[in-house]
């Protein structure tokens, strides 16, 4: 479903992603963990075609990102950002925000479908007429998820989807994401600095540090503590359970 090979991303003189490779099977959930500045968000943004200067191979559903048009790419993969406050248009009611990608892509009946999508993420009926500032953080993140699903993509790229939320709301949003993945057969790539979130949501994960992937492991290896790199161990120790 997703194939990333020898990806290098540069910002001016700085190389922020160095020789990153991974692949994700259809229906799988893959996690990227690491500290700020390790390049994990940059990998996601590059996959969505939001960075210019990179080399290597990225394919989503077999389509190479380099030569695929923006609209086509948007129908294959969508992104959910960390900050639900910053990623919604403040002057649009949320039904319009959700309908926007469908309007751009000339899909009929976009308003009806926007209402269905909002209902699917737990914001039924009159919620559609609210503005972002009239919603809580968790509700806003639900809107961002509904919008990401508007073009029925098969891949969702989630950049710290719950780090801005309270733990009680985080649980609700993570459950929603798991349910949608199962019901719609989605493939996830999730970026987080919280190893527990990744362990809960992902089948496999990669640990990033200083622009590189230092270790790739599956959930079982993580749970049994079979980590090779010191840095991964440090990360595991720091996110220990109560």
């Amino acid at each position: 479903m997703i194939r990333v090979e020898n990806l290098n991303v540069t910002f001016g003189a700085a190389t922020v992603v160095r020789d990153v490779s991974f692949s994700v099977a259809a229906g799988e959930s893959f996690g990227l963990v690491g500290e700020s500045g390790s390049g994990k968000s940059t990998v996601l943004r590059t996959m969505m075609g939001l960075n210019r200067s990179w080399n290597g191979t990225i394919e989503i559903e077999g389509a190479p990102v380099k030569s695929t048009g923006r609209k086509d790419l948007a129908r294959r993969a969508q992104m959910v950002f960390q900050d639900p406050y910053a990623s919604l248009h403040p002057r649009f009611v949320i039904a319009r925000t959700v309908a926007e990608p469908m309007r751009i892509n000339g899909i009929d009946n976009s308003e009806q479908r926007a209402r269905e999508l909002l209902e699917m993420v737990g914001l039924p009926g009159a919620f559609g007429f609210r503005f972002p500032h009239e919603l809580s953080g968790g509700q806003r993140q639900r809107v961002a998820i509904a919008r990401a699903l508007a073009l029925s993509p098969k891949v969702l790229l989630l950049d710290e989807p719950t780090s801005a939320l309270d733990v009680s709301i985080q649980a609700e949003v993570l459950n929603l994401l798991s349910r949608l993945r199962r019901d719609l057969g989605l493939t996830f790539v999730i970026v987080s600095h919280d190893l527990a979130v990744i362990a809960h949501m992902c089948d496999r994960l990669a640990v990033m540090r200083d622009a590189r992937i230092v270790e790739t492991l599956d959930r079982r290896q993580l749970q049994e503590g079979r980590l090779v790199e010191d840095y991964s161990r440090e990360l595991l120790a720091a996110s220990g359970d109560v």
Binding site: V167, A171, N175, R179, A196, A199, D241, V242
Partner: peptide, 29 residues
């Protein structure tokens, strides 16, 4: 902390994802 008695505190503790997660839905408050 693990002996917390109030249902709210217990709920908050229960809804945290864990490294040892089985992938089941998290208990919601």
């Amino acid at each position: 902390m693990h002996n917390a008695r109030h249902p709210y505190t217990r709920g908050l503790l229960a809804c945290l994802p864990s490294i040892q997660s089985t992938g089941d839905p998290l208990p919601v408050l």
